[in-house]
Simulated scan of single mutants.
Amino acid sequence: MTEQSPPIVTDIRGVALSVDEALAAVSHPRAGAVALFVGTVREHDEGREGVSALDYTSHPGALAELTRVAASVATIPQVHGVYAVHRVGPLAVGDLAVVCAVSAEHRAEAFEGGRRLVEELKAQVPIWKRQEFADGDHTWVGL
């Protein structure tokens, strides 16, 4: 019997994200742990209060890069599922910006995979945000 590659779900969407979808996507009978990361829009950044809204934009090749990152995490032994979905478009404070999940046989592998997925997504996937502040100013992050 040959071992199958873990399922990988990646997407970049202009609609609300779902934690339940992430958990269902990485569900596996051999998985004893799921590491879940939910990134939300906060009302402060770069030492400044008053973020009122933001807008995420992605490069046309961002999904391919996100899929490459997720596939790399799926090679960790005992990982059984990888999910990474990022939101684009206008978001308000409190909205979900990114949802990532990694299932594995044990918590150590789930935590390792989850952390690697989030850190590599932030470092390598070309997604940028334009933050609006209550005073009318704005900044770009990730350019």
Results as ranks from 00 to 15, higher is better:
Thr2Leu: 15
Glu3Thr: 12
Ile8Arg: 06
Val9Gly: 07
Val9Ala: 10
Thr10Met: 10
Arg13Pro: 03
Gly14Asp: 11
Gly14Arg: 02
Leu17Ser: 03
Ala24His: 13
Val26Phe: 09
Val26Glu: 07
Arg30Gly: 12
Arg30His: 13
Ala33Met: 04
Val38Lys: 09
Val38His: 09
Val41His: 00
Val41Gly: 00
Glu46Phe: 11
Glu46Gly: 13
Gly47His: 07
Gly47Ala: 01
Gly47Met: 08
Gly47Leu: 04
Arg48Ala: 03
Gly50Phe: 08
Gly50Gln: 03
Gly50Ala: 07
Val51Ala: 05
Ser52Gly: 04
Ser52Ala: 12
Ala53Cys: 09
Leu54Tyr: 01
His59Phe: 09
His59Tyr: 11
Pro60Thr: 01
Pro60Lys: 01
Pro60Ala: 07
Leu63Thr: 05
Leu66Glu: 10
Arg68Glu: 14
Val73Leu: 08
Val73Arg: 02
Val73Glu: 10
Ala74Val: 04
Thr75Asp: 14
Ile76Trp: 05
Ile76Ser: 07
Pro77Arg: 10
Gln78Glu: 15
Val79Ser: 02
His80Gln: 07
His80Phe: 12
Gly81Thr: 04
Ala84Ser: 13
His86Thr: 03
Ala92Ser: 15
Val98Gln: 02
Val99Ser: 04
Cys100Asp: 15
Cys100Arg: 07
Ala101Lys: 06
Val102Trp: 04
Ser103Tyr: 04
Arg107Met: 10
Ala108Pro: 01
Glu109His: 09
Arg115Cys: 14
Arg116Asn: 06
Leu121Ile: 05
Leu121Thr: 08
Leu121Pro: 01
Lys122Arg: 07
Lys122Tyr: 04
Gln124Ser: 15
Pro126Cys: 01
Pro126Asp: 00
Ile127Val: 10
Ile127Ser: 01
Ala134Gly: 06
Ala134Glu: 15
Asp135Cys: 07
